[in-house]
Amino acid sequence: MSVRDYLRERFFPHMWCPGCGHGTVLNALLRAVEKLGLDKSEIVMVSGIGCSARISGYVDFHTMHTIHGRALAFATGIKMSRPELSVLVPMGDGDALAIGGNHFLHAARRNIDLTAIIMNNRIYGMTGGQFSPLTGYGCFGTTAPYGSVDHSFDLVELSTSAGASFVARSTTYHVIELAGIIEKAIAHRGFSVVEVMSQCPTNFGRRNQAGSAVEMLETYRKQTVPLDSEAAQTSPEKIRRGVFVEKKRPEYTEAYEEMIRSATGES
């Protein structure tokens, strides 16, 4: 299979702005799926609302485009009824952590076998640039014309403490690393979180003097370091990338099956 075989080409060119990182996430995701050799019919992609959520329209898997923040709730239902399917849940930073913050925490706590891919562009792009929980202190949005006074979540720490058994971060500059991480996250049995720093030149970049898409990618290159590198030790102010958590914990659908067996007296 080639990557293009997983696309719904009739919907191309896609609706994302020139230079939007979300297309690069789609690109890396398709390469990860191809590498794993998954069949289209073995994958369900469930998304919510926002620029990021439009990704489910472009892939030729089973797809559901659901309601804002609740993609994980729909995905939980799918996984409970068909645990053999790989369920991918791409979300935006606002979709996952503001509107859907509660669903996110509890999916991580349950360790249900879903792959959450959070395309973090630090803004609500589709609705015109309102600040999100990951915009960051001092950064600008249409609803923060003098700079945001809210501090960001650290998504990696949040997911880790909520109980996710796979937690990673990468960027749309580091595309080979990104595809490798998504591949590991899909293969992982349990709740996996991949934060992808994804540029929004239109609504975040413009308001924050972050420059063009190219310049935003240059920033990702300069301002991030691999987790286990020497640079991570010597430059603690830089953002760390890589796989932060990869551990075995009882998975929710398996534990549920086990409970049914014990309650009905089957062993």
């Binding site: 293009r4 191309f12 994302w16 939007c20 979300h22 297309g23 789609l26 749309t172 080979i176």
Partner: peptide
């Protein structure tokens, strides 16, 4: 293939 992998539009192979 870095162009192919980075392209947000999947426009180059």
């Amino acid at each position: 293939r870095l162009c192919q992998f980075r392209c947000p539009d999947l426009a180059i192979e």
